[in-house]
Every structure is written in structure tokens, then in C-alpha cells.
Design a protein around this nucleic acid. Structure first.
Lengths: 246, 246
DNA sequence: GTCTGTGAAAAGTTTCACAGCA
DNA sequence: TGCTGTGAAACTTTTCACAGAC
């Protein structure tokens, strides 16, 4: 998340052009979800959808969906809903069409391999354009038609300045030096699967996906509902009055 | 907070007990991160750490970290910091020790396979206890020492009621029926990697990891900073007054 | 009548700043 | 002195509720 930008300088007219950048961060991540849903709807041949239906498919409430979309403009038709193709086009334009941004993956272990042909990437138009690792046994081999390059060759392979998204799927201890290398090569967006927090310059955006934390959060919720169940039982049976307390 | 009684439910007086379960959701997900950092610190032999250092490692500010921990109790020492082992123990107790919750994976494609031995799971003590799929060619084969069972055999294989976390790594179109099956077998926590929103009963917790959306969000940030750069250039060169605007 | 777009209110979250303890 | 724990303030996000377009 990081991103302490806010107006990035650039002397904007003090008040109201359209909407310079100003989409709230929470909204941006939901817009990405909506776009995914719209892609499926379009593929299924759905032409029109109401805020209620789209919201249900995305798992949010309909007021939230309408508020989110209102940050982009008024693309709905009152009394009818949204034209799927048109709304999809507008979202694509506004949040950055996936077609334009090739993706590279550093760290071709199990997870990196799984992501190369990940359906959720290709269905949105993202394409993995190169793979990197430092393991000599991997360098030079191919995965899904892509040759694995040595990380040292990063700049040579990625001279295309449009490559701006790097996925880090290395072990935690290598992640920071790998990130440094990527940043050095001009990559501005990182998706980090390593379980550490990456330090990067302010103009680089990092999103972290911590799968261990996700499970841990589920464990918390499970523990919570078990505790509720147990105390409900205690109430029925008379209970013991005090809990173990650590 | 100070008061550590709290009593997990148990017929609270109507108005102001302490806080029933009450850890804010935003805090819970950071606590999971802190626990991961503490695990690494403990492994590295660090005995004591200040809020500032721990916060830096977790990527948050130190006031936030202290506030988060204050929801659990006062486990720090003023003027000194936190005892790593003790804080780790307390977090483990409070957010649900990973040791207690076996995990099953449904959908043994590339992603499912990658998760079986995912370092981020095992480093937290999570252990994948069974694999399921519906593909006849996969059923009966082994991955990392685990036999892949048919989803129809779920209840038979998972009679252990402590199995309460299910990971869904199927294609989007199968995810809802798979979730229904898991819920039917009594599983209360799902980690969903499919690109759809799962409908589940209110007592089931779902967390969704949408990797496509993650990239899309990065694409948005990239587009934003490119637009900033371009408009900065336009200002220097005189600019063209209007942007292409679709 | 139906469904969008949006101000205004409510809820949740983060940051500040400092009292208080080791 | 140096750091934690925490009220109170600032900010962000969500929800409500309804005017207005079709």
C-alpha cells in the first residue's frame, strides 16, 4: 500500500477539474474486483446489470458499488442499470487496462510456476513475459514456453520500459535483494509473496500477499466462534465461572 | 483497555461490559503479520524488541502497533520494549495458535500443489492434512506424500472435527459447489483463491485472495504515476491542454 | 415504478501527543 | 532517560436515505 502521494506536486487547479487521481484506496481494490466480475459477465453474454446484481456478485452492498463507480463518472442508466460492455470499458480505461502491462516473475519455485499460467492473470489480460531465478539448475530451462533467465540478466532481458510489474516469489531471505534489483532495473510495481515487508523508494508501489497470515486470520475467527460456542454451552450447563485465562 | 477480564461472551450486561470479542478486523490482520515477524525474530535469536523496531519490520507505524497490541493486554515493558518469546506466546494464544488447525486443500492444480508445502504455512505451524479433487486422473495419486482423495469422500476422510480450514484452489466455475460441499462437511473457514465470491452461511468465514485483482490494483497505481509524469512534462513543454480522455 | 447518483450521518481506523512506568 | 499504553483528534470508509432520471 504505502503510497504517500497525494497530489504529487504538479500545481493542480485548486478545486474541480474532473477527478485528477483521487480514487480512495479502498475503492480502487473493489473496482478491480468489479472489473473481474464484468469480464465474466461479458463472456457469459450478459448485456445489462443492475447495481444490486453486480454488487451481489462482487460481495459488497449496492450503495457501496454505486458510490465506488461514482468516482469514475456516471455510467449507469437510471431505472435500468449498467451496460456491461460499456462499464467494463470505462473501468478498464480508468484503472489501467491489463493489456498494457507485461509482468515478470522472480523466483521460479512451486508458487512462481503456479502463477505463470494462472487463470486469474490471463482472464484479465495480464501476460507473464519473463521468468527469473538465481538457481543455476533452473536458469536456462523452460516453464510453459518461457526460458528462465538469471536475475543478473534482468536489465538485458527487460529493456522494454513497459515492463513495470514484478512478482516476487522467492524465499523470504532473498526477497529484499531481489526487490532492490528489480527497482534498480526501473520496475515500479511489485507483488510480494515473501513473508517480509519490502523496503522500496517512495515511487515504487508494493502489494504484499501473505498466505500464512490469511490462514492465521481464519484461525482467529475459528477460535472466536469456538469460544462463543463453549461459553453458550457453559451457560446451559451452569458453567464454571472462570476461564483458563492464558 | 487495561482490564483483562472480558469473558468471551457469557451473558454480558446489556450495555458496557468490556468488549465482547472486540478486536477490530483491521487489527486482527495486522496481528497475524506481527506474529509472523515474531516467529522470524525468535528463530533468529532476538530476545527483546521495541515497538518501533517491530513496527518497522511489519511495515506499520509504531503507534499503530502499540494500539493493536493494547487490544490484547499490556505485554510490553516501559522503557525497554517487548520480550519476543512472551509476546509471541500471547499473540499465539489470542489469535489462535496455528498448531491446532489442520488445513485441507480442494483443487490440486498448479496453485493447490504450490500451497501443499508452502513455506509460509509451515513456518507458522499450519499443516496440510488432506488433498481433494474431482479429476479422475488425479484421484489416488500422491503429492508431497499426501494422497489425493475424491471430493465425494470428504466426510469420510475428514471425520476429525478439528479440521476447520479449507483452501479452495479450483477453477472459478467449480468453486461454489466445492464450497457447498465443504460447508456441508462442517468446515467453517475457507480461503478462496477462485475469482468468484462464495455464498456461505453466516457462521462460515471466507477470505478471498484474488491474485488477478492484485495485479490490476498495481496497474492502476502505475497508470496513475505515468499520468502524473506526463502531465508534469506537459507543464514543462507547454502541454496540449487536453488529455485523450478515452 | 425502478434504479442510479450523491449529500449527510454513522462507523471504523489511524495518528497524535503525552502521562506514567521501568 | 526511553519506551509503552492510551485518550482524544483527525481522517477514511461505509451506510443511509432520498432526489432525480429513465
Amino acid at each position: 500500500m504505502s503510497n504517500r502521494r497525494d497530489k504529487a506536486g504538479a500545481a493542480q487547479p485548486p478545486d474541480g477539474p474532473r477527478h485528477r487521481n483521487g480514487i480512495p484506496e479502498a475503492t480502487v481494490s473493489r473496482l478491480a474486483t468489479y472489473l473481474g466480475v464484468l469480464n465474466s459477465l461479458a463472456a457469459a453474454g450478459v448485456a445489462t446489470i443492475s447495481s444490486g446484481e453486480l454488487a451481489a456478485a462482487a460481495g459488497v452492498n449496492s450503495a457501496q458499488l454505486r458510490k465506488d463507480l461514482s468516482h469514475l463518472g456516471s455510467y449507469g442508466i437510471r431505472g435500468v442499470g449498467y451496460d456491461v460492455a460499456y462499464l467494463r470499458f470505462q473501468l478498464d480505461q480508468n484503472i489501467g487496462s491489463a493489456e498494457h502491462w507485461p509482468v515478470i516473475i522472480v523466483g521460479v519455485g512451486n508458487l512462481g510456476r503456479a502463477l505463470v499460467n494462472h487463470a486469474g492473470f490471463s482472464s484479465r489480460g495480464f501476460k507473464v513475459s519473463a521468468l527469473f531465478d538465481v538457481e543455476p539448475r533452473l536458469v536456462g530451462t523452460r516453464v510453459e514456453g518461457l526460458t528462465i533467465h538469471h536475475l543478473d540478466d534482468l536489465s538485458a532481458v527487460v529493456d522494454d520500459p513497459s515492463v513495470t510489474i514484478g512478482v516476487v516469489t522467492t524465499p523470504g531471505e532473498s526477497a529484499q535483494p531481489v526487490a532492490d534489483t528489480l527497482v534498480g532495473a526501473g520496475i515500479k510495481c511489485l507483488l510480494n509473496f515473501a513473508a517480509i515487508n519490502l523496503a522500496v523508494p517512495a515511487d515504487v508501489t508494493v502489494r504484499k500477499v501473505d498466505l500464512g497470515s490469511e490462514l492465521q486470520i481464519l484461525a482467529y475467527h475459528r477460535q472466536l466462534s469456538l469460544a462463543d460456542e463453549i461459553s453458550a454451552e457453559e451457560m446451559v450447563t451452569g458453567g464454571f465461572g472462570d476461564r483458563t485465562d492464558v
